[in-house]
């Protein structure tokens, strides 16, 4: 049965088996390939997207469980064309990615964290990022980049006040 999904601010009609995980709908039907497949059992976080601004593992979220909530993928993280999200810029400044495959999921988890908690402690970061594996082992840089982005967001909001 056809179903309408709201992804990155656009509506898409898809028609797939109701048990199909959102991951595969996004990647195959919508051709948004930035969201990655890593494990299929919510263990690695490569498939992390936002459902109603909450970070979820799309590999275990059947399409039937998704309603009209806004879906955001890595392609929709930046606030606009040619503008990066502060985390994306910090990721480049700290030269975080190596192979880069897990980074869409890392960024979506980190962005959900900062949206909910703009001044996270190290423990907050550990907890929010614990579901995302990086086999290149860039955790130290990810942590530093989250800190940098949090600082810049705070500075920007200070200036604007």
């Amino acid at each position: 049965m056809p179903k309408t999904l709201a992804v990155n601010g656009e509506e898409h009609v898809v028609d797939v088996a109701p048990d199909t995980p959102l991951l595969w709908v996004i990647r195959e039907q919508l051709a948004l390939t930035g969201t990655k497949f890593g494990c299929g059992i919510a263990q690695c976080g490569a498939c992390t997207i936002w459902l109603d601004k909450q970070a979820i593992r799309s590999c275990v979220t059947p399409i039937a469980a998704v309603g009209t909530e806004a879906i955001t993928t890595i392609e929709g993280l930046a606030p606009g064309r040619d503008v990066l999200h502060p985390l994306q810029q910090a990721w480049i400044d700290h030269q975080v990615p190596q192979c880069g495959y897990c980074q869409s999921g890392q960024l979506m988890s980190a962005a959900a964290l900062l949206a909910a908690n703009p001044t996270p402690s190290d423990e907050d970061i550990d907890q929010a990022m614990q579901g995302n594996i990086c086999r290149c082992g860039m955790y130290q840089r990810i942590r530093a980049a989250i800190r940098t982005a949090a600082d810049r967001i705070a500075e920007a909001s200070d200036t604007s006040e």
Binding site: L32, T33, G34, T35, T73, I74, E75, L77, A78, L84, Q88, W91, I92, Q95, V96, P97, G100, Q103, S104, L107
Partner: peptide, 10 residues
């Protein structure tokens, strides 16, 4: 190669 690895385009 990094810019393409933070916006999903790589």
């Amino acid at each position: 190669d990094l810019p393409s690895k933070v916006d999903g385009s790589a």
